[in-house]
Simulated scan of single mutants.
Amino acid sequence: MIERKQLKDRTQVTFVLPADTPEGPVSVVGDFNHRNPAAHPLEPQGDGTRTAKVTLPAHSSHSFRYLAAGDYWFNDEHADHHDGTNSRIHT
Protein backbone atom coordinates (compact mmCIF):
# COMPACT_ATOMS: atom_id res chain seq x y z
CA MET A 1 0.00 0.00 0.00
CA ILE A 2 1.15 3.54 -0.66
CA GLU A 3 -0.06 6.51 1.37
CA ARG A 4 0.42 10.14 0.40
CA LYS A 5 0.28 13.28 2.51
CA GLN A 6 0.41 16.62 0.73
CA LEU A 7 2.72 19.17 2.29
CA LYS A 8 3.31 22.72 1.08
CA ASP A 9 5.30 21.95 -2.09
CA ARG A 10 6.20 18.35 -1.35
CA THR A 11 4.47 15.02 -0.86
CA GLN A 12 5.26 12.64 1.99
CA VAL A 13 4.97 9.12 0.61
CA THR A 14 4.66 6.19 3.02
CA PHE A 15 5.42 2.74 1.62
CA VAL A 16 3.53 0.10 3.62
CA LEU A 17 3.94 -3.69 3.66
CA PRO A 18 2.68 -6.42 6.00
CA ALA A 19 5.12 -7.20 8.82
CA ASP A 20 5.94 -10.71 7.59
CA THR A 21 5.38 -10.73 3.83
CA PRO A 22 8.04 -11.25 2.68
CA GLU A 23 10.00 -12.33 5.72
CA GLY A 24 13.18 -10.56 6.71
CA PRO A 25 14.38 -7.03 6.03
CA VAL A 26 12.91 -5.05 3.13
CA SER A 27 13.95 -1.68 1.68
CA VAL A 28 12.31 0.60 -0.84
CA VAL A 29 14.82 1.36 -3.59
CA GLY A 30 14.18 4.01 -6.21
CA ASP A 31 15.40 6.91 -8.27
CA PHE A 32 14.67 9.17 -5.26
CA ASN A 33 17.40 7.50 -3.17
CA HIS A 34 19.93 6.75 -5.93
CA ARG A 35 18.86 3.07 -5.77
CA ASN A 36 20.56 2.72 -2.39
CA PRO A 37 19.04 -0.22 -0.43
CA ALA A 38 20.34 1.19 2.87
CA ALA A 39 18.59 4.55 2.44
CA HIS A 40 14.97 3.57 3.24
CA PRO A 41 14.52 0.29 5.13
CA LEU A 42 10.95 -0.49 6.13
CA GLU A 43 10.55 -0.33 9.92
CA PRO A 44 8.04 -2.36 12.00
CA GLN A 45 4.96 -0.49 13.24
CA GLY A 46 2.62 -1.33 16.12
CA ASP A 47 -0.27 -2.11 13.78
CA GLY A 48 1.40 -5.15 12.20
CA THR A 49 2.85 -3.35 9.20
CA ARG A 50 6.26 -1.98 8.34
CA THR A 51 6.79 1.35 6.65
CA ALA A 52 9.30 3.72 5.13
CA LYS A 53 8.59 7.43 4.56
CA VAL A 54 10.08 9.49 1.77
CA THR A 55 9.42 13.17 1.08
CA LEU A 56 9.35 13.94 -2.64
CA PRO A 57 8.68 17.03 -4.76
CA ALA A 58 5.00 17.57 -5.49
CA HIS A 59 3.81 16.81 -9.03
CA SER A 60 6.68 14.48 -9.84
CA SER A 61 6.98 10.87 -10.98
CA HIS A 62 9.36 8.25 -9.60
CA SER A 63 10.29 4.62 -10.18
CA PHE A 64 10.93 2.18 -7.34
CA ARG A 65 11.00 -1.46 -6.28
CA TYR A 66 11.32 -3.32 -3.01
CA LEU A 67 14.40 -5.35 -2.13
CA ALA A 68 13.99 -8.16 0.40
CA ALA A 69 16.44 -10.61 1.94
CA GLY A 70 18.05 -13.04 -0.47
CA ASP A 71 18.23 -10.45 -3.29
CA TYR A 72 14.46 -10.79 -3.83
CA TRP A 73 13.19 -7.81 -5.85
CA PHE A 74 9.46 -7.14 -6.19
CA ASN A 75 7.01 -4.44 -7.23
CA ASP A 76 4.14 -2.81 -5.37
CA GLU A 77 0.77 -3.94 -6.70
CA HIS A 78 -0.70 -0.66 -5.43
CA ALA A 79 1.67 1.55 -7.45
CA ASP A 80 0.17 4.07 -9.85
CA HIS A 81 1.50 1.97 -12.72
CA HIS A 82 4.42 -0.19 -13.83
CA ASP A 83 6.91 0.43 -16.61
CA GLY A 84 8.03 -3.14 -17.13
CA THR A 85 10.61 -3.68 -14.42
CA ASN A 86 9.67 -0.92 -11.97
CA SER A 87 6.70 0.34 -10.02
CA ARG A 88 5.86 4.00 -10.63
CA ILE A 89 4.40 6.60 -8.27
CA HIS A 90 3.13 10.10 -8.98
CA THR A 91 3.11 12.72 -6.24
Rank of each mutant, 00 (worst) to 15 (best):
I2E: 00
N75P: 01
V16G: 04
A52P: 00
Y66F: 15
A38L: 12
P37E: 05
A68K: 02
V26I: 03
D20M: 10
A52T: 01
G70R: 01
T85H: 11
F74R: 14
T91W: 09
A52K: 08
F15E: 00
R4A: 08
L42Y: 00
L17A: 09
K53G: 01
P44Y: 12
G24M: 08
S60F: 09
P18A: 13
T14F: 05
Y72M: 13
A38W: 06
T11A: 12
D9V: 08
V28T: 13
P37Y: 05
R50W: 06
R50A: 01
P41C: 07
D83T: 07
N36D: 15
S61L: 12
H82G: 01
G46F: 08
D80N: 13
R50C: 02
R65G: 02
L67E: 08
V28F: 06
Q45T: 15
N75R: 14
G84R: 04
N36C: 03
R35H: 15
R35I: 04
V26T: 09
K53Q: 15
K8T: 11
E3Q: 13
N33W: 00
P41I: 01
D9E: 14
R50D: 09
D47L: 03
A52N: 02
Y66G: 07
S87T: 08
G48Q: 09
N33K: 02
V26K: 02
T85I: 09
I2M: 06
E77D: 14
D31I: 00
E23K: 15
T14Y: 10
D20G: 05
N86D: 12
W73H: 07
A19W: 05
E43N: 06
G48T: 06
P25I: 02
L42H: 03
F32C: 10
S60V: 07
D9C: 06
L17Q: 12
H40N: 15
Q6N: 04
Q45K: 13
E3T: 12
L42K: 02
I89Y: 10
G70S: 03
Q6R: 13
A52L: 08
V13F: 10
T49Q: 11
L7C: 05
